[in-house]
């Protein structure tokens, strides 16, 4: 699976491993009177697994939506690969190399597993309407080339047996896996995973953790993960940022965060 995928897409570009790839400074987001995120700052370094944790409603998913351009924060600055980002559409974030999965599986239900993952290659496919209409020559060879890349992902995620099955009928755990495959097909530099293990049993969680670690190691992909299973978070992530009521309450290695009093209070409650 390693050598065959387009090497350019996994190249670091202008960011060296360990350097800051994306930084969020003082970002605030509110919907009317509801403040979802209040002045949060943190950074994501190239090649790390960065976890975002926090109780329900802490603003974790909103944070991901801000990062990939779905929400536009009222205040604050986001810098991606050294460039400051203004308000942008999500497809531009995608073209810059940010992919994500969703908390509630957001697959294209009417399409097969293969087509879903092929959709992830959209940005890499250049042929226009007319050559598609004939499905001959360049359009066909492009399709075959990308099919090959997608088959590597299918092999890697061990979903070859459901290749042609419509995703709407797959069990939940497999749907999550297909969704990861779809994001991987984009060969992203930054992969945002929103609760990839929600609702999974132990075995499925182990599989998913294995996939995430392999993705990080082989593609050198930077990963941001939101997860509620603390065991998984502590084992997988290099650094953890903790949100509560839209504010950052802790940031550091898993061990540091675990012993942080504010985090313990946020999770267990505190006597007032």
């Amino acid at each position: 699976m390693k050598a065959d995928v387009d090497p350019k897409a996994t190249m670091t570009g202008d960011v060296e491993p360990g350097q800051v790839m994306l930084s969020v400074e003082n970002v605030s987001l509110s919907f009317g009177g509801v403040k979802a995120i209040r002045g949060v700052s943190f950074d994501i370094r190239k090649g790390e697994i960065r976890a975002i944790i926090g109780p329900n409603g802490a603003g974790k998913t909103s944070m991901l939506n801000v990062i990939n351009g779905f929400y536009h924060p009222q205040e604050g600055v986001i810098t991606f690969k050294g460039r400051r980002r203004s308000a942008m559409r999500p497809y531009i974030a995608a073209s810059q190399g940010i992919a994500r999965t969703f908390q509630n599986v957001a697959l294209f239900k009417g399409m097969s597993t293969l087509d879903n993952i092929m959709t992830g290659r959209t940005l890499k496919m250049k042929r226009g309407l007319l050559s598609h209409a004939l499905h001959f020559g360049p359009a066909k060879s492009e399709e075959i080339r990308h099919r090959e890349a997608v088959e590597h992902i299918i092999d890697f995620l061990e979903i070859a047996h459901i290749r042609k099955a419509p995703v709407g009928k797959l069990p939940y755990g497999l749907q999550k896996r297909v969704e990861l495959g779809r994001a991987l097909a984009m060969e992203p530099e930054l992969l945002l995973l929103d609760e990839p293990m929600a609702g999974m049993n132990l075995e499925e969680k182990q599989d998913m953790s294995r996939f995430i670690l392999t993705v990080k190691d082989t593609f050198n992909t930077t990963i941001v993960i939101i997860e509620h299973d603390m065991g998984v978070v502590m084992d997988l992530s290099d650094r953890v940022v903790v949100l509560d009521y839209g504010q950052k309450i802790a940031d550091g290695t898993p061990a540091e965060v675990q012993s942080n009093q504010a985090v313990i209070d946020a999770y267990l409650g505190v006597a007032h």
């Binding site: 294209f108 959209t122 042929r127 499905h135």
Partner: peptide, 23 residues
Amino acid sequence: RGSLGRQWMAIRDMDIAAELMGI
């Protein structure tokens, strides 16, 4: 059955996710 058709179906099935895929 080509890339364009997949883009159409992606928009039909889940337009938000489609946009986040770069469509």
